[in-house]
Amino acid sequence: MKRTKSNKRDIWRMVLIGIITVIVVITLRILVFASFKIPSFSMEPTLFAGDFILVNKLIPGPRIDFLGNNEEGRPLRLIGYRTIKRNEVLVFNDPYYKSAEIIQNWNAYYVKRCVGMPGDTLYIAGGIYYSNGQRNKINDKIATDSAQYAAMLPKFRIPGRFKELGWTIDNFGPIYIPAQGDLVTLDTINIHLYRPLIEYETGKKLVEMEDVYLLNGEVCRQYQFKLDYYFMAGDRGTDSKDSRYWGLLPKDHIVGKVAYIWKSKDSGTDKYRWDRFFKSVE
């Protein structure tokens, strides 16, 4: 009889330990970290296809997708360890997933480098990035050979979203990256830069009619942004679909900062790349 009771206690103890373990793991996955596999070559030489990365959600803060402002449909973001810094590698949801407009699709992920911060004025000249008039030091890390850009077919060098401005992926901008609270005046240039952002934030259509801009039928001469935005770029500049093609990234799409590579496997040979295990990502 005593043995039976003891066995029952052991079983319940194991069940309790299992439940607690599951709760802890789920909590950590929601609030602290996430793991992703790199599928492409757009972040070489920093990340290779077949790398498995660990993402720190505490930078800029864990995002709770099922909670938040129901009126605007935005997820809740908790206070993080610190804010994002320029040139950090981030994982984020694709803001233009199969759409010309910014959408909320929490199932499609990108990994790129944050080369432009809220409040920056960014431009690219000959494949070289400049922020606020200063050459971005990240050019020493990413592939920005102007000869590579020149060799690309014209159709791949012209980003469709900005073609009216005459920009190419190697000669791009300048573009001001809005910070939360920034007020911009709409004009013939800004309408191309910020229309998707304004429509995303308001849920309304912004149209031009005889040099007048109408937001859901009402005249809109200026707009104050509700979110921070970022300019994202791939380290392999000639083979990366990034902000040069699709535009600026809203903060609420950011998952977190890439911390390190915890495993790496060559997709071609199916062999482990042991030298990349537990390698930090800068």
Rank of each mutant, 00 (worst) to 15 (best):
I138V: 11
K98M: 09
N190G: 14
R276G: 09
A233W: 00
N87V: 01
I191H: 11
P159T: 13
R276E: 08
G234W: 02
D235R: 04
I59D: 00
D10M: 10
I38M: 12
K263C: 06
M14V: 13
W167N: 03
W106D: 04
L90E: 02
T83I: 00
I84E: 01
A147P: 01
E72F: 10
T238Y: 06
P154Y: 06
N7C: 15
N70G: 09
Y96W: 13
D187I: 04
Y97K: 02
R63E: 12
I19H: 09
S131C: 02
I191R: 11
A259K: 02
M1L: 13
V32E: 06
Y97F: 10
E101H: 08
G173D: 08
G181T: 15
D145W: 05
V115K: 00
V15A: 14
G18A: 08
R9A: 05
Y223H: 07
V15H: 06
K57P: 01
A259W: 04
L193T: 09
Q134I: 10
F231C: 04
S146G: 10
V91Y: 01
A100Q: 15
E72V: 06
I17C: 12
E72Q: 13
K141H: 03
T269Y: 10
Y123V: 07
R13S: 04
G166P: 07
L47P: 04
R244E: 14
D252S: 07
D211E: 12
A259H: 08
I191M: 12
D182Q: 06
Y123I: 08
K2Q: 05
A108S: 07
S280E: 02
L31N: 02
F225T: 03
R236S: 04
Y130L: 05
K263Q: 14
V207S: 09
I79P: 12
P62G: 10
K263D: 15
D51T: 03
K205R: 08
M232L: 05
K163T: 11
I38D: 06
G181A: 15
S35L: 07
I19E: 11
E210N: 15
Y200A: 14
G18D: 09
N87P: 05
R236Y: 14
A179N: 13
T46G: 07
I79K: 12
Y194V: 12
W167K: 09
R74N: 10
G50F: 04
D187T: 06
I128W: 05
W167Y: 10
G234M: 03
H192F: 09
G247C: 06
L153N: 08
E71Y: 15
K85Y: 04
E218C: 03
N139E: 12
M117C: 15
G247V: 05
D266E: 12
P45G: 14
T144M: 00
M232E: 00
N69S: 14
I254Q: 01
S267H: 07
